[in-house]
Amino acid sequence: MFIEVKNLKREYKMGKEISVGALQGVNFTLEKGDFVSVVGSSGSGKSTLLNILGGLDWEYTGEITIDGKNIKEYDKNYYRRYIVGTIFQQFYLIPSLSVEENILLPIKFQKRDSKEIKERLDYIIDMVGLSDRRKHLPKELSGGQAQRVAIARALIDSPKIVLADEPTGNLDSKTGESILQLLQELNISEGVTILLVTHDKDIAKHTKKRISLVDGKNV
């Protein structure tokens, strides 16, 4: 068992006495190298689950263990840097930085050997097929290329788990298809566990496993 989520609950307090249960007891387990989709309509708790797994929201109850370690034992920044890599629907690239600099952004905040970084960067850029776009700015890229940059950024630090939040949501179906293919390739070549969140059941077909969320519970 690589990742274990046990009885995960998250409540949002809307007022003094009103609270909304976004997650009401989610349970699942994943093996190392799994490529899993989390499917659910809007309001099913997908985003909440993603924020918690991405290390952005720590106000949950229940237990999440990755590789046998409860994630609450990690330093929050360490967790976001080394344990997870997140890919967003809107890419979230920094407009004033080049492709290369965007990919290296997580490394800006840590000490690393520069030769090692360069090798990793060359390898990742090659993997996502942007070798000829290294110095371009985000505005000079197509949507698919921008998402490839975001994928490369998520993978630069070799995280244990990659979270993809509707990664094809802003792309046409053909480009979306190529992004999904890339994720499948990376899942195999990097051996990284990928959790893909989507509302689209067709996209979910690309993954080996599927978790369906309905009203904050998995069914």
């Binding site: 991405g54 976001r80 840097r81 997140t86 950024r153």
Partner: peptide, 10 residues
């Protein structure tokens, strides 16, 4: 700021 925090800036 959200992005750089999400990818690990303290």
């Amino acid at each position: 700021i959200g992005i750089i925090k999400a990818i690990g800036a303290s």
